[in-house]
Structure formats: C-alpha cells, structure tokens
Design a protein around this nucleic acid. Structure first.
Lengths: 289, 289
DNA sequence: GTTCCGCATGAATCGATAG
DNA sequence: ACTATCGATTCATGCGGAA
C-alpha cells in the first residue's frame, strides 16, 4: 500500500558507519539526537580475539565513559537497550553486570525494565553443578520517566497456530512447546483466546542465528527489529556503538530508520560498508526492471 | 516392585510446622541439618495485609538476619533457592533484589546461578510504558562449590524437532537411557523409555496455578517440585522459612522428603496443619481397605 | 520439487595441565 | 598460588547432498 505513495513522501534514510573506539567516536554525535540505542557490547572475557577482552573487574570502569556519551546523545524521550550476560566461573556467577546496573543508575540513567531473552538454542554442554545457560539480559534504561513507546507496533497476532496449541495444553509433552511466532516472543496467549492481537510480555523467545556462513552475528535480527518497532517510528535515529557484523543498522535501514553504527574492528566496518552498497544496488534494481 | 518390600525399609517422613518470626524460629534448628531451602519471601511492599509489608529500602536489613540463620542450618552440600522479583515503581525497577545478591555474597553465600521462572499465565494488564511482567528470579545460593545435584531427576523429553529424526531408535540409545536410570531415583525417566531425554536449561517454563485467593503465595507446586527433585533425594530435609499456604512442604512430603515450614501468620499455620491431618488420613486409608 | 539424514558449529563451563 | 590454554561434554539449527 505504501509502495503506491509517490516519492515525495519518502525521506532519505541515512546509514553511517564509524570505525574506532566508541568512547571517542561518540563525541562526534550531537546532544539529544538519538531515539534508540540498542547494542550488545563484548561481554567480559569474551570475544578476546576480536575485541581484546575486558576483564570483569575492569568492566564498569571501561563501560561508564561510553555510557556517559550515550546519555548525552540520547533524546530525553529515547531508550537505551543493553544486551549482556555475566558468565559463570569456578561455580559462581559474576556480579559485574548487576553492579553495572547500579553504576548506570548512579550515572543518571533510569533502570526502567529488564527484558529476558530466552535463547531457544543455547550453547550445549554438561557440568556437574549447573545446566546450560539459556537466557540473557536485555536491560532497558531511559533518561526520563516519559519516553516514546509504540506498543501497538509489536502486538502479536493470534492465529490458527495458537488455537491448535491451546487445544492440547494438557499433555506434559506439549508443555515443552517450541512454537515460534512471527515476532518471536513469549507464548503467553492462553489469556487471550479469541482476540486477534495481544501485547507481548517482557520475555522474548528467540533463537540465535549462529551457524550463518558469515561472521557470527551478536544477536538474531528479530531482536533489534523488535526494539526498533517498539521504541522508534520511521525516520527516527538508531545507534549501535558496538555494531559488530552490522545487524542493528541493517535492520534499522530496512525498517526506514536512520542509523549509526560504530565498531573498533576495521574488518567489520568494511564488511558492513560493502553490505550497504549491495543493498543500495538491490534497492535500485526493481526500478531498472 | 518396591511396593513388595516390607515396611521396615520405609522410613517415616516428618513434617514440622512452626508458627512465628523466621528469624527467631530458625534458631531452633540444628546447624548443618537442611539439604534444601526453597522459599518465596514476601516481596517488598507486597502482601501488606498479611505480612505487614517490608519497604524496599529496609528489605536487605530485614532479610540478612534470616539468611544468616539459613546459612547456619544448611548443610555444606545443600542449596538455597530464593524466588523473588523486584517491582516497578514510578517507572523504575527497584534495585533491592540485585543489592540483596551482593549482600548475600558478602554474608558468605556463593551466588551459584540465576534461574528464570517464565510464568506462562502472567496476569493480563497494560501500562503505557511497560509490558506485563512474566518472569521471576530464582536465585541459587550455596555454601560450598561442591553441592548435591541430581541432574538426571529432571531430564526432559527432547524437542519436537527431533521426533522425525528419531525414526531409527537404536538399541544403543535405549541402553544408554537405562544405564542412566540405574543411578537414581528418577521414576519420571521411566515414563519416557524409548524416547530421548535431554538436560533442561536454566529457564523454567511453568504455568502459574489458578490463584487460590485466600492464600497469598503464588507458588505453583511444580516449582518446588522441580528443585526438590534436583537438589534432594528421599529422606532429605527441605525447609521453607516463608511457607505461606504450605505448597513447599506439601510437595516435599508427597515426594518422601522431610520438611520444615515456618510462617508468621497463625491462620496459615493452622490451615497447613489441618491439611497434613487430611493427608495422614489418606495415607492410612489403603491399609484399612 | 519434497523430505530426510549427516555434519559442522556456536557470546558455555569445568577440570586438568602447563608456564 | 595464579593465569593461560585445551579437551570433553552437549544440543538446537541451518546447510548441503541424497533418496
């Protein structure tokens, strides 16, 4: 339907890539200019080969100067989504993530919500004293109590698949229901039978897109997609200060949002740039036809 | 087969109820005598009518003397499961729970794991700036790095995806499953003989039971059941210092574990006691037959 | 063209071994 | 003693080749 609209209404979508340390590159951005920050920074002691690895003890110290810049560039109505998970070591969970929450609050952020990303295909393994870690934190921070949130944009359609599922809730086997819906979040639908669409909850139920040929994507594209739908509208600005293989800005661009991606790894930046080129080409192709 | 065994091998299962303040009542228990503590304490500022309510700012101060006693009565191989979730107030999540984690660590507990309880039937509702909260924390604490964990007791059938691929159930697989049965007391596995089972993850996906409105605890029995299976064997001791309507000890008793429940509300204690009476009656009934 | 099967591959974790 | 590296364990996915 939208495609019938003339070009006049079609604003140009910008996509910027900056190569360098986020702490420095962020200084180039204007105050109060970003609607949504969604990012997955390298976790402590992870991604050593590409990012050098940050020790848990140093993590907060490393992160605060960056989040300080994020606080500056985010609009008062904007939202900051931080995807992170502490590791287990020698039988204990690290506390650096929950300490980071306290530190960010202290820096001036509001800790608005903690979404759970339930990873359907978590990393395998067996240990005498723990099960597989199958969830990650999606911490939501805001500058102000009032922020933009477009809840209707992420409503879940309740289709026939849901009715089928609801018919046989009795069996224990069926309780391990791996149903995946389009938007990918939780399956709490039994309260809503008969309605066409429902609001989701704060538990997202997505698979990781791991075994793609290309570089390992930090998160599945449905993850940034969901938050972009929820917290931005068209022509808003999305920022990912650890953009990695570029999932966030790729999705943002596709959804008609302007975006800025920053990464310290030159290879990633080059790869993203060429991806954007390809996309531009694809965009024009239909007109050639 | 077991039913043919004489009564001699059948130890008596004890179920004790104490009415009073946990901080005081716990002092009556012996050091290193409990195998599993599983509890859902009154959340801050919740359930004011029944418990008087604990303010978020005072929560840690209120909880630490109790957890100190819990640390004393727990066996070195035992586990402490704390079900809790911070509420949102004025647009922000409270931080008292994550501060409590740090305080408990400081008290000498090991923070071993954080399970997620994904509530399937979370209460419907809509707010302008947040979705329904459909998960709670299940914090695992231990005294020592080595603790008892009976992982085979909670294995689950493999996901539906595998059914199609498991046409050729080789005898090797069956043998392997039988071998695992030998190790322990899991009769659930026997229900799934011929089907492949896998270990669960740290995300629990259970429905909340329809709330019996006169009881304030919203603890589905499958929750304590899962942890009792996982962390205890028969004739072990289970403790719930905020036993409420008695779900924990009820389940424990049914599973042939000794249990101690404490609650400050006399009405609850009376109700539980009468429940136990009923159960005793039911237990003896077959012999009368 | 479907469907089915084999195989590689992960933001994992522990314990042992080596510097 | 303390860190760095390695092997073993495990399972949901997507891909490619085969029936």
């Amino acid at each position: 339907m939208k495609s019938l609209k003339p070009k006049k209404l079609m604003k140009t979508i910008e996509t910027k890539i900056l190569q360098g340390d986020s702490k420095k590159e962020l200084k180039k951005l204007k105050d109060n200019s970003i609607d949504l920050i969604v990012t997955s920074p390298p976790y402590a002691d992870r991604r050593k080969k590409t990012y050098g690895g940050v020790k848990p003890e140093k993590y907060i110290e490393w992160f605060l100067p960056i989040s300080s810049e994020l606080l500056r560039v985010l609009k008062p109505t904007g939202t900051f989504i931080l995807n992170i998970k502490e590791k287990a070591e020698k039988g204990e969970r690290h506390t650096y993530v929950i300490e980071l929450i306290l530190a960010l609050k202290n820096q001036g952020w509001l800790w608005t919500e903690e979404f759970i990303w339930h990873k359907r295909n978590s990393y395998p393994g067996k240990w005498p004293n723990r099960f597989r870690d199958s969830w990650e934190r999606l911490l939501q921070f805001n500058k102000e109590k009032k922020f933009n949130m477009y809840q209707d944009a992420v409503k879940v359609p309740v289709g026939d698949w849901a009715k089928k599922r609801l018919n046989n809730l009795s069996s224990i086997d069926k309780k391990r229901d791996n149903a995946k819906n389009n938007s990918g979040f939780s399956k709490n639908i039994s309260n809503w039978v008969g309605r066409k669409t429902v609001y989701p909850t704060n538990v997202l139920h997505l698979a990781t897109e791991c075994s793609n040929k290309q570089h390992s994507a930090a998160f599945p594209r449905s993850l940034p997609e969901w938050f972009i739908k929820l917290f931005t509208k068209k022509n808003d600005w999305v920022l990912d200060p650890f953009v990695g293989s570029g999932t966030t800005i790729e999705v943002a661009s596709k959804m008609q949002r302007n975006s800025i991606g920053i990464d310290i790894v030159p290879e990633y930046v080059e790869m993203i740039k060429s991806k954007i080129q390809e996309k531009r080409y694809t965009l024009f192709e239909p007109t050639i036809k």
